[in-house]
Structures are given as C-alpha cells and as structure tokens.
Simulated scan of single mutants.
Amino acid sequence: MLAAVAARTDAQHPVGALELQQVPRPRVADLPAHWTVVDVHAAALNHHDLWALRGVGLGQDQLPMVLGCDAAGTTPDGREVVVHGVIGGEGHGVGPQERRSILSERYPGTLAEQVAVPTWNLVPKPAELTFVEAACLPTAWLTAYRMLFTSARLSPGDRVLVQGVGGGVASAAITLAAAAGLEVVATSRDATKRARALQMGAGHAVEPGQRLPFRVDAVIETVGAATWDHSMRSVRPGGVVVVAGATTGDAAPMGLQRLFFTEVTVMGATMGSRADLEALVRMCVTTGLRPVVDSTFDLADAPQAMARLASGEHVGKVVCTVPHRT
C-alpha cells in the first residue's frame, strides 16, 4: 500500500526526508488482540510530523516510519470512525505497562492507505462530519480543546490569548473558544492572518508583543521563545498559561519573578483523552462547528502537503485524502 514515510531524518531540510513508499498492509494475524485495521479516508498533517522528520523523538533504529497521527476512515465492518492517536498510557489494547506514545512514534502512522490501532482507540464518526473534517480533530483540535476546557477550565465570558494564528492548534483554539462564548485575543505578524483570526471568531487580533486591552484569564501558548515574555505579561494574576508546543524554541529567561509574584500557573498539554475526543466530536455536531481546513492533497502528493505545512503560510489544517476504493 502507498504510505508517506520518514525514510531518514534531516534537521535542516525535513521535507526532503519524506518519501512515498509501498509498504506492507497491516495483517490482522500479525496484530495483538483487540486491534483493528482501518481504511484511511483522510489524514491530517501536524507539526509532530515535521519534528519527526527532523529526528526529534524518532531514532535511526525506528526508520523507516510511516508518518501521521490523525485519521478518519472505515473499519472492516463498514463503521465510520475517528482514530484517537494516543497509544498506551491508559492500558487499552497494548498492555497495562506500555508507556504512552503517539502514532508514528512506536507504531506506523496514518499517512497510508491503512493503519492498525487498538480497537479501543476508535471513536464513532458522526454522519454530520466529513472524513476530512473528522481527520482534523484528534491532534490539533483535541489539544486545543483540552487546553481550553480541561487544563485552563475556561467558562463563557472568560478571556483568552491565543498566540500565533495559523497553526492547527491556534486556529482550533480560536474557533473553539469563540464558539464557547470566550473573549479571544489572537496574535500574528501577518495582517492577513490577523484578519482570518477575526473571521474565525476572535474579538481582537494584534501583532505579537502588542499590549492587550486587558489581562487575560489564560494563554494558549504553542510558539515558545518568540512569544513567551508577551504571554507572561498578558496573563492576569492567578491566571494560567497552557503550553502545547515551542515552535520557536524554549523560552529563556522564563520570567520566574513574574511567575511566582503574580501566582501564575504554567501547565503542559499534549493531545487529550479518548473522552476529550468524544466530547469534542459531540461539540462539533451540536454547535455546527467545523475545523478550519487550509488545503487538501491526495496521499500521492504528501510531499507537497508537508511543504505547505513547513512553509508556515497555512491557516488551519493541511489534510491528505486517500481515494475511495470500490
């Protein structure tokens, strides 16, 4: 079957390390008990894929590795499902002692015609969501949902700063927060992206580092060094900064004096639980909310899709689709 594979790693030119290859289909007879093979209809790309191509979290002994954390597709009995990409940790389908990982770290990922996962990881896909829309949810949208509502515990009327419009998590956070009745401030260096943020529901869109009209209850931080000081200056005393990425590197200095003096909480978040994903799917159905999709590519054009993601010019999710089989 066709798959987008990390054939090697390249810290400077990660897209060049991606290859389209024919790899063996997962065989039920070779899988652990309670695993299912899913026919992938759509798989969304994430910065996790770019980091893997750079060699972060993916050793040479693990290559080649099929990339991809997100997917929506069908099971052998015809059920339409969304794949929760976190394997282990909760002990379902892999044994109680296996440490948590994400698809494409220890097990082949979703950028392929088929993917094998523990059956417990499959969430029913409602008919209201297309395969492309559903494939956007399990990583970026799930992380944003967890950051806003599980980690920060925000409620309607609260104020939130979302750093770095354009990335999948940031775009999802703006859309989810606005739908939940939060007052959203978004940042971007790009005027076009700031305008898009307003279209997605942000009440304010400013340049990075610009003083906000008010202190926020929480900051959604995925940028890192370039925005960290602004995040710490923008959160109210007793507020929370939730971190799910550092695309510009680690923050240094961290601003410890402000941290302890204003009693700010700093929390980490990575994706979310299966229960979070089920709640997110229900939210999309009941509110009519849909993921922001930047562009779609055929799986055979995965290198171009990855280049689009790496360019930083996208707003929303970049998705690869697998042609329907007859």
Rank of each mutant, 00 (worst) to 15 (best):
V40S: 11
V86M: 15
P253C: 08
G89P: 11
E221V: 13
V38F: 05
V81Q: 04
R211F: 01
V184C: 04
Q210S: 07
M271Q: 08
L198I: 08
A279M: 03
A11F: 15
R106C: 03
E221R: 02
P323W: 00
V86S: 12
G91M: 10
E128M: 04
V292A: 14
V40A: 08
E278T: 12
G316R: 01
A29P: 03
H230A: 15
V318G: 14
L20Y: 06
T139K: 00
A244H: 03
S155A: 14
Q257A: 06
V292H: 14
V264L: 12
I220S: 06
L18C: 15
D10C: 06
T36Y: 04
L289V: 11
A44M: 04
D229A: 15
P108A: 06
R99Y: 01
H47G: 08
V264N: 01
L67V: 11
Y107S: 00
S231M: 04
P108Y: 02
H47K: 07
K317H: 13
M267N: 06
H92L: 08
A178W: 02
V206D: 01
G16K: 04
R146F: 01
A152L: 12
L176S: 02
G268K: 08
S295A: 05
G157K: 14
V162Y: 09
A195C: 02
F214G: 01
Q114C: 09
P96R: 10
P138Q: 05
I174H: 11
A112W: 02
R290M: 01
R258I: 09
E278L: 05
R215N: 03
L137P: 08
L45S: 11
S231H: 05
M306E: 09
V322F: 07
A279Y: 00
A127W: 02
G312S: 11
L111F: 05
T222D: 07
R215H: 11
Y107H: 15
Q97F: 02
R211G: 13
P96F: 00
A11P: 12
V216E: 02
L45Q: 11
A170H: 01
L148W: 09
G203C: 05
E98R: 15
G78K: 00
V281Y: 00
M271W: 07
A300R: 15
G91L: 07
L212F: 05
V132S: 03
A3C: 11
A226F: 09
M254V: 14
G201P: 04
D158P: 07
L103C: 07
G68T: 04
G73C: 05
A172K: 04
G91N: 00
V223N: 00
R325M: 06
G59C: 03
G272I: 04
A225D: 14
